[in-house]
């Protein structure tokens, strides 16, 4: 199914935000829409978006490549992104990431064998006063988890596991 068949309402709303002769502006919101289902942008959706906006598939792909919140490959269903940037690192974020990876048995950037969780470091998330923190990116959106501990994090992952099963 094409994007517009799947989300006719959303596509219409997105296109309505930009001048009619500047459809291309809609490419980023449409990419989020395409990413919703699987947490990454599929090639056929890139083609689809290109056709919708009158730009080439290569143009669309080059945006997926540029922006770090778009992914061109699948990862765990929960993409846990720990901020290890300067301010957070000054408050123990590097240790937090290392400990979390150890408890989950993955390397930074890796995914748990059950395919549920991917853990990766990211750049500053504009919540530097609330370290350690991470954001979780799922297809459906983003949420922040601030002032975290390993225990709290593992508990939360457990709860999501239950929810999933």
């Amino acid at each position: 199914m094409t994007l517009i068949e799947k989300y006719p309402q959303e596509v219409k709303q997105i296109l309505a935000r930009y001048p009619q002769d500047q459809k291309r502006s809609a490419v980023m919101p449409l990419l989020y829409l395409a990413q919703r289902e699987n947490g990454f942008v599929h090639r056929r959706d890139m083609k689809d978006i290109g056709a919708m906006l009158d730009i080439t598939e290569t143009d669309v792909a080059s945006l997926v490549g540029f922006y770090s919140l778009y992914h061109d490959e699948p990862a765990g269903r929960l993409r846990i992104q720990v901020c290890t940037d300067l301010s957070c690192a000054l408050r123990g974020a590097d240790d937090f990431l290392a400990a979390l990876c150890e408890s989950l048995g993955v390397e930074p950037g890796g995914t748990t064998p059950d395919g549920l969780v991917t853990v990766e470091p990211v750049m500053c998330l504009a919540a530097c006063d609330k370290a350690p923190l991470f954001q979780v990116q799922t297809g459906a959106g983003l949420e922040y988890h601030e002032r975290m501990t390993i225990e709290k994090t593992l508990e939360w992952i457990e709860s999501r596991k239950e929810a999933a099963s």
């Binding site: 502006s25 980023m28 989020y32 922006y67 770090s68 750049m123």
Partner: peptide, 10 residues
């Protein structure tokens, strides 16, 4: 007024 989201690029 419209919102528009970036996607991870300082």
């Amino acid at each position: 007024v419209h919102t528009h989201l970036g996607a991870g690029a300082y």
